[in-house]
Nucleic acid binder design. Sequence first.
DNA 1: CTCATTCGTAACTTTATCTGTTTCGAAAGG
DNA 2: CCTTTCGAAACAGATAAAGTTACGAATGAG
Lengths: 138, 138
Amino acid sequence: MAGNCRFTVAAHICAVLVLDPRITVTSDFIAGSVNTNPVVVRRILAALARAGLVTSKRGQAGGYHLAFAPSEIDLARIARAVDDDDRLVFTPNPPNPVCPVSRSIRPILTEAISHAERAREAELSKIRLSDIIARRRM
Amino acid sequence: MAGNCRFTVAAHICAVLVLDPRITVTSDFIAGSVNTNPVVVRRILAALARAGLVTSKRGQAGGYHLAFAPSEIDLARIARAVDDDDRLVFTPNPPNPVCPVSRSIRPILTEAISHAERAREAELSKIRLSDIIARRRM
DNA sequence: CTCATTCGTAACTTTATCTGTTTCGAAAGG
DNA sequence: CCTTTCGAAACAGATAAAGTTACGAATGAG
């Protein structure tokens, strides 16, 4: 698996939190919707909380809330919250200083990849939680 | 490691092949530039050959050639050749049919991710091998 | 105050993937 | 014939993700 499900699970979790914003939702309830373990859900929610997208409360009647209106949270924000910032894209081996390609290719590719990631994020930012809720089958 | 170095290594390999298109380059030589094992290089080259981007010849004076002019190969083409098509983005667990979010979120996210990937590819396609060679330090 | 509930987090297992390596057969040519 | 070189399988080690167990800390109900 050269990837992970954190982004889609995080989006799913956020969508559940939107369903009825008045209710404090427990990780146990969300785990039922996502069909996984509550600790897995709490791990994702911890990342979302670190990014300021959700708030949490412990104890009885505790659980999670969205920190923003559904129209203020887009998919790019969710992706940034749960995606690993420094994914390995270059071999850890040092470049061969004798080879002209080796000497110069990294900054060129770094720039290209950075532009590509920005384009990807821009596209994800077009979809907001409010759009997802509007399009769901009831 | 939630990722791999195949794309950057593949781009590096292609750039080496461009250096002098008259020469048939061995995986051993390329491995020296990339600073890794020849078998690793051949694995990447096998993917590039499957995509039709390079040709190979066995035996003495054997090795690899680009199948197209450097101006006809862009980074998106290289990425498509070596990237896993069906990366895991959804949890393998079945959706919970009782939950309205669970029932409807996958197609919505699938579409959003597909648009985002298209935007990423479009950006990568702007850089061609000829651009990379033109920008290298000699 | 006590106790049940719930989050926060660490630790561990299982599984999957990537990279590197060894090995060997097949093709190609000197 | 024999060296070179690719093609591909097989394996080890490292890393990461997902799931699970466990337990402490916070919170509020009674």
